[in-house]
Design a protein around this nucleic acid. Sequence first.
DNA 1: TTGATGTTTCATGATGTCAAGCAACTCGGT
DNA 2: ACCGAGTTGCTTGACATCATGAAACATCAA
Lengths: 155, 155
Amino acid sequence: MSSRPAPADPLTLEVVELIGSVVARYHQEYDEAAARHALTGSQARLLTLLRHRPLPMREIARRLKCEPSNVTGIVDRLESRGLVERRPDPADRRVKLAAVTDEGRETADRLRASLDFAREPLADLTSAERAVLRDLLKRMLGTGRPEPSRGRAGD
Amino acid sequence: MSSRPAPADPLTLEVVELIGSVVARYHQEYDEAAARHALTGSQARLLTLLRHRPLPMREIARRLKCEPSNVTGIVDRLESRGLVERRPDPADRRVKLAAVTDEGRETADRLRASLDFAREPLADLTSAERAVLRDLLKRMLGTGRPEPSRGRAGD
DNA sequence: TTGATGTTTCATGATGTCAAGCAACTCGGT
DNA sequence: ACCGAGTTGCTTGACATCATGAAACATCAA
């Protein structure tokens, strides 16, 4: 993986720098949007994760890439505010499913609607440019079909 | 600002989603790289900020977008490990400049070198594609020179 | 002097890790 | 079918970091 030599060319470094800026700005705006709804960033992420369906605690921890014991606390705080509730899993009594309440879903929806980032900025790009951006990002993330013609089946 | 109507078109939403993925992955890899050097994310960011020149505490807070009282603690921890030191500002005795020590600079350099993200992923893009990506990101960030000659040449 | 600015300290709360504990599930041997 | 060992899911506790806001203090600037 990281055995590849470091590309020191200025163009790559510039792109890396720009991505850093995008990340910083995204985070800033995300936290601000969350704060507007009296949520922390972690709470907002968790709430968003539950928007569509309930999840077991351990699954939340896996997706948020943190320890399950951490999730306990975040869910505790959201539950004490009535945004989330714990339900038993009928299939396994060890498991507790965290699920948004009606109020929690409303909050999550409002939060999503107020997430301006990459919406206002993207407004300055044409449709074609956005499509190009999408394809490049996909390939960066390895989501973009690894070009079956060229192979690279390995790794 | 946010008075613009929300563009609900699928393409924009997809790009927003992708940017979210990039942000998540960047953060994960950044924190992992920091952890490899026994640093937290905040400590790594602060150390990186000081790599080139010392900065007053209040300036660090401004760039990190947090309270000055918070910076005190982070610098305290880095200072207790010998990675950073406080110096007086000759021009203003109220001010304390935080500066990396030699060891701090080495750590910052090693950290930077181990930041694989957007380097390995970018390796799959051609030079031309990277240039396109750079330009699109620049425009997203508003860094793309708002055309000073004509002033708002607009769309 | 008066007011503004830069830093620190304190109190408080959220986030994060790890180790230990409890409850419930699984599975193998009898 | 049973029972016991090991595993898994969640919580609790202790602890460190990060973050904010109010208050204290020194210094600057008018």
